[in-house]
């Protein structure tokens, strides 16, 4: 009795909390994006090897980082739902997938737009690019699995297993530039010792990366609220909530 009440309550409280937090996340990410764009397009100097084309880094690297980060969040939420039966894990994992898929596709396309002028090719079957493409297929597979299974609990379990198996791809993406000789350049920031990038180039990159993370959380909160509403649509608290929120429009 207490256990079931507790589970409902956590979704209910998360829903209420997220309504208060998500507008602030959207606002903060907008400010950070603006600062990152001014720094990246305006203040950062021209790269001595790549010319102005290096400015693609400010949209490519944050989306690539986010593509992996979103997957880790999705797999962690899936593990929580699978092992400890945390309902919030189910809804968060489902909310992550479209976000992660879109940023993975963006990382691939902006990478191609950077690769063409620098490498002379849009695409190469090298380790970094191929493992990132596999990440996109993992997201799409997860989304297809959710759409194919009608029972939401069963879909969440199957999705969590897929997400956890796919986690092996994340270190492969990260270390691919070290393990294999690839066309893709090695890491700029996350290597041992000092980052090999000028501070005036680095700060806009960190701003854009932080902006994307905050934006991810903002959208994740909205998507999770939708999943919660669908998941709990027959509960009393959702009925009370929609009754309240629709009060002014009932007449219209």
């Amino acid at each position: 009795m207490f256990a079931s009440w507790h589970k409902y309550a956590s979704l209910m409280h998360f829903h209420a909390l997220s309504q208060r937090v998500s507008p602030w996340c959207f606002g903060l990410s907008a400010v950070l994006f603006a600062a990152g764009l001014i720094g990246g397009l305006g203040l950062a100097p021209t790269d001595y090897q790549q010319g102005e084309s290096f400015r693609i880094i400010y949209v490519h690297v944050p989306s690539a980082w986010l593509s992996m980060f979103a997957y880790i969040v999705m797999a962690t939420a899936g593990a929580l739902s699978l092992i400890w039966k945390v309902k919030l894990g189910e809804v968060i994992a489902r909310a992550c997938a479209p976000l992660g898929a879109s940023f993975t596709a963006l990382a691939l396309v902006t990478g191609a737009l950077w690769g063409k002028p620098m490498w002379g090719t849009w695409w190469a079957w090298d380790a970094r690019l191929t493992s990132e493409l596999l990440l996109l297929f993992l997201y799409l597979g997860y989304i297809a699995l959710q759409a194919a299974i009608d029972d939401r609990r069963a879909a969440a379990r199957a999705g969590a297993v897929l997400a956890l198996v796919g986690v092996v791809n994340i270190p492969i993406i990260h270390y691919s530039v070290e393990w294999w000789s690839t066309l893709h350049q090695p890491a700029t920031i996350t290597k041992l010792g000092a980052p090999s990038i000028a501070t005036s180039m680095l700060i806009p990159l960190l701003l854009m990366a932080f902006a994307s993370q905050v934006f991810f959380f903002a959208v994740l909160l909205v998507r999770t609220r939708c999943e919660i509403l669908e998941f709990e649509r027959h509960t009393q608290w959702v009925k009370a909530l929609v009754g309240r929120s629709s009060m002014p429009t009932v007449i219209a």
């Binding site: 010319g51 084309s53 693609i56 949209v59 490519h60 737009l113 002028p117």
Partner: peptide, 10 residues
């Protein structure tokens, strides 16, 4: 710097 066709679409 001549890379407009790549930077702006990105």
């Amino acid at each position: 710097g001549g890379y407009a066709a790549f930077v702006w679409p990105a």
